[in-house]
Amino acid sequence: MTTDETYEQADPHVVETWLKGWSLARELPLPIADHGGLRVDVGWPDQQTRYVFPALGPGLFHFANTIVQPAVFLKICAPASLVRPVLPPRWVIQAPGFMMTRTLPAHPSRLPLPEGYTLTFDTANAGPIASIYASNGEVAASGRLAIVDDYIIYDRIATTPAHQRRGLGSAVMAALTTEAVSRDIRKGILVATPAGKALYETLGWKMYSLYTTAVIPHN
C-alpha cells in the first residue's frame, strides 16, 4: 500500500502508455522524452505544457527550479507530501489525482439507463465516445477511449451537475468497457479525481499510483 513515507515507483511504461492515450483522446501531440520524464506540448491558454514523471528525480528538480512561467504543469506519480518539499514556493499543489488500473471483464454488461435518457456511441473521432443524452437533448454524461498497444485509456469521463447521482457515470463506463473488450483489449488505465476514484472503485478499479500535480498560478 502506498503511503506518504514510502511509495512504489510507477512503471515508466505504464505512465507513458497512459499519457499517450490522454494525448490521443484530446487530439494533442504525442509525448516526447525530456529529462527523464515526458513532455506534452498542450498549447491551451490555461495549460501550455505538461511534464509527467513516474517518480521523483533529477528531471523534476530541474524543471521545478528553472520554470517560472504559469500554465506549465508538473505531474508526478508520488504523494504530494513528498513532492511539496522539493518545489520552490512559487509552485502550487493542485487537487490530488489517482492513476488507476483494471483488468476488464471478459463479458461486461451494459447498465440500464433511467427513464428519459439515451446512450449513443461515436467511433468516428479520435477515440470512441459514449454519450448519454437527456430527454431535452442535452449531453448528460460522456466519456471516451484511446487505444495504445494492448491498453485502453479512459478519459474525459464526466456527468453534468444537473444529472449526477443517477448512475450515468457508471453507465458510460460500462458502455466504454464493452467497446474495449469487443476489440480484445483487457487492460485499462485512467487517472481519477477524488470523486471519480470513489466511483471507479465500486466498478472494480484499483489505485495504481498517487498522481500529484503542481503549477505556477497566473498572477
Rank of each mutant, 00 (worst) to 15 (best):
R110W: 10
P45K: 05
T66V: 11
W91M: 11
G97H: 02
L74T: 06
G143F: 02
A55H: 14
A146N: 03
W91L: 06
W91F: 06
Y151I: 10
A140T: 01
A158C: 08
G116I: 05
L104Y: 12
R156L: 11
H107G: 00
P58M: 10
S131M: 09
T159R: 12
P89G: 08
T118R: 13
V68D: 15
P114R: 01
I93W: 10
I153N: 01
N125L: 14
A71N: 14
A80M: 10
L60D: 09
Y51T: 04
Q94N: 11
Y151S: 12
L145T: 02
A126F: 04
D155T: 04
V139D: 08
P88C: 01
F63L: 15
A146G: 07
L38S: 07
L82C: 05
G57R: 02
A124N: 10
V139Y: 06
Y117I: 05
G116K: 05
F73G: 03
P70D: 04
I67H: 08
L74M: 11
R90F: 08
T49I: 13
T49M: 09
R84E: 07
A64M: 05
A95G: 09
A146D: 01
T120S: 12
I147V: 13
F73Y: 12
D34E: 12
E115P: 00
Q47G: 11
H107E: 13
F98P: 11
D150Y: 09
I153D: 04
A78S: 04
T66P: 00
A71H: 13
A64N: 08
P79G: 08
P161D: 11
R110G: 13
G97W: 00
I76V: 15
V139P: 01
G43I: 05
P89E: 13
G43P: 12
P88I: 04
R102A: 14
P79I: 06
G37T: 06
V83T: 00
L82P: 00
W44K: 15
Q48V: 13
G127I: 01
T101R: 14
T120F: 10
M99V: 03
L56S: 07
D46Q: 13
A33I: 09
I67P: 09
P128V: 01
G137D: 10
N125R: 14
L104D: 01
D34S: 11
R50Q: 15
A140H: 08
R84W: 00
D41M: 01
G36T: 07
G127T: 01
D46N: 10
R156W: 02
K75T: 14
P108V: 04
P58T: 08
F98C: 04
I67G: 13
P88L: 03
Y154Q: 12
I129T: 11
V92S: 15
M100G: 11
I129V: 14
G116R: 05
